[in-house]
């Protein structure tokens, strides 16, 4: 019926609150091709995570839906692996065991013991964590944890890799390293990726398309920017590249001129933004 790889089809999302219905998303419409790297960017509380959760199947859209390879998404599953912002590794398992849990669940019936072991080690090597695979999360740094989180997601061989601000909690240097690794992996595996980010440089460096979202409530896609930069991309060379700076400027312009928010609201951290979201009631509905 449909030939698109991933179709986010007129998705609207409403949450009931004690004060009335809160409309988080309205009419989000996006078609993503196979192997495409798409970033979602927007201010805090604009519903980026909600889009990701709907694609993941963790939330059900109130209106519209998500179709992946011709099948409607209505529950979470390993074909849409998620890399969470705060790694969410199981703290009582080693890196190896964390990936193993996913591999056993996905390939338990198709791979034998040795093949599974090889596959786990392969994926940990891919994120350069081969040397620390028998360490527990508490023994490794934040960047390393996030690497293991990515290895766990990749090991599921997902059709779509969903990343919710994967490098948001890392320092700038580690973040740059992680971006390089992600580009390498992407070049090798050609995954379809949807990544949420706050970071304009990250979005331009990594993406094929940048989806810019308007502010909530009733957030939707404001503008889509196609990034036509040659791959492999090198951040140092791109720093002086006119095209790169043009894309960067475009995103900044959208975020800070067209989607201007007051300083006070901007200062609200992500977490608080989420909870305050629930206190804002859409005047049209309430």
């Amino acid at each position: 019926m449909s030939f698109e790889h991933l179709n986010i089809d007129h998705v609207s999302m409403e949450f009931p609150t004690p004060k009335g219905v809160y409309v988080a998303l309205e009419n989000v419409n996006l078609v993503i091709e196979k192997g495409e790297f798409v970033s979602l960017i927007g201010h805090s509380g604009c519903g980026k995570s909600t889009v990701l959760n709907v694609v993941a199947g963790l939330h059900q859209a109130t209106k519209g839906g998500v179709v992946l390879d011709g099948k409607e998404v209505n529950e979470p599953g390993p074909d849409r692996a998620v890399v969470f912002q705060n790694h969410s590794l199981l703290p009582w398992l080693t890196s190896y065991q964390n990936v193993e849990l996913a591999v056993k669940q996905v390939f338990g019936k198709t791979k034998n013991k040795n093949e599974m072991k090889e596959w786990i080690e392969h994926n940990l090597a891919l994120v350069h964590m081969g040397y620390a695979m028998h360490k527990r999360p508490e023994e490794i740094s934040g960047g390393m944890k996030q690497r293991v989180g990515i290895a766990r997601a990749l090991a599921m061989q997902p059709k779509v890799l969903l990343m919710d601000e994967p490098f948001g909690a890392l320092d700038a240097l580690t973040r740059a390293h992680m971006q390089e690794s992600l580009m390498e992996i992407q070049a090798e595996l050609n995954n379809t990726v949807i990544m949420i980010t706050h970071d304009v440089d990250e979005a331009v460096l990594l993406s094929d398309r940048i989806v810019m979202m308007t502010n909530g409530p009733a957030a939707t896609i404001g503008e889509i920017l196609k990034v036509e930069l040659e791959r492999p991309r090198n951040r140092v060379e791109l720093a002086d590249d006119a095209k790169y700076n043009y894309y960067r400027h475009k995103v900044l312009e959208f975020l800070y001129e067209r989607q201007h928010v007051t300083g006070e609201k901007q200062a609200v951290s992500k977490k608080e933004g989420k909870s305050s979201q629930l206190n804002v009631v859409n005047p049209r509905v309430a």
Partner: peptide, 12 residues
């Protein structure tokens, strides 16, 4: 931790 719950859901 809610994220761990989500991990479990994604893994089915």
């Amino acid at each position: 931790d809610k994220d761990l719950n989500n991990v479990s859901k994604v893994l089915r």
